[in-house]
């Protein structure tokens, strides 16, 4: 495997998704090059998670086509692994076995490496119920990365964590991504998180791309004035499309949208 191009490219061509007569996504065109880290932000119910599920092949588009490395996605996308908002660990398997279970062939060393990378090797024998929320998400991250997927889809994986744990997890995700350069798509409510992690931030509003912004800040990213300007720009795009009543959600917050995806 080529070290620096471990990822895949993702191409959405005129993708639309509707449930009954309710349109979630309409005519989306998007090209994500190999190895790029893309963040998708926007209001609840604008189809961020749906977009992610389409890329994973968990759902089929009503119209249009999704290509991963120029191959159309039919059914589950073999390249993709998903990290959900809840860790979704199997409670009856130890931490070690939760990572090992996704491998087609048992490989103790590979599992230990993956746990080492997320800093949980010494907890390998514990049950998931004995871990904190942040530790559980780190196991989920180890499980997602143990197969070295070329495409990692992150569906608000840090949304349920406390602020400090969230910062640690952001560092960890960035470090692992810099090492392996898989293509990464992060859905988040937290504009600060998007600017901190992503090469490119996409604002999704009413099923359309309202903003496609490159974040060319040096890594690791500190809160600088350039950082703040990026955040402000993204927020004003989201706010420009928010309903009047929604504005209060953003007042005084660090670019975090308070409402949760239903």
């Amino acid at each position: 495997m080529n070290e620096f191009h471990a990822g895949v490219s993702v191409h959405l061509q005129g993708v639309a998704k509707a449930y009954g007569d309710r349109t979630i996504l309409s005519d989306l065109d998007l090209r994500i090059p190999k190895g790029q880290f893309v963040a998708i932000v926007g209001h609840s119910g604008t189809g961020k998670s749906t977009l992610l599920r389409l890329m994973a092949g968990l759902e089929e588009p009503s119209r249009g086509e999704i290509f991963i490395d120029d191959h159309p996605v039919r059914g589950l996308a073999p390249a993709a692994r998903v990290m959900f908002q809840d860790a979704r660990l199997l409670p009856w398997l130890s931490v070690f076995d939760n990572v090992a279970v996704v491998l087609a062939k048992p490989d103790k060393e590979l599992v230990q490496q993956a746990l080492q990378r997320v800093g949980l090797l010494e907890h390998a024998k514990k049950w998931p119920a004995q871990l904190s929320g942040g530790q559980r998400q780190r196991v989920a991250l180890a499980r997602a990365l143990v197969v070295r997927p070329p495409l990692l889809l992150l569906d608000e994986p840090l949304g349920a964590l406390d602020a400090l744990t969230r910062l640690e997890m952001q560092d960890l995700i960035e470090t692992l991504w810099l090492e392996e350069r898989f293509t990464s798509v992060l859905v988040t409510h937290d504009v600060g998180e998007a600017v901190r992690l992503a090469d490119r931030v996409i604002c999704l509003e009413n099923g359309r791309i309202e903003l496609d912004l490159e974040v060319a800040l040096p890594r690791p990213r500190e809160r600088s004035s350039a950082f703040a300007r990026m955040e402000a720009k993204i927020l004003s795009t989201i706010l420009g499309h928010g309903k009047e009543g929604d504005r209060s959600h953003y007042a005084g917050m660090h670019g975090e949208v308070a409402s949760r995806e239903a």
């Binding site: 073999p78 993709a80 692994r81 959900f84 279970v101």
Partner: peptide, 12 residues
């Protein structure tokens, strides 16, 4: 159902 979906994503 979340666990079942996880198992699908990981191709059990």
């Amino acid at each position: 159902p979340g666990l079942l979906e996880m198992a699908r994503v990981y191709r059990f």
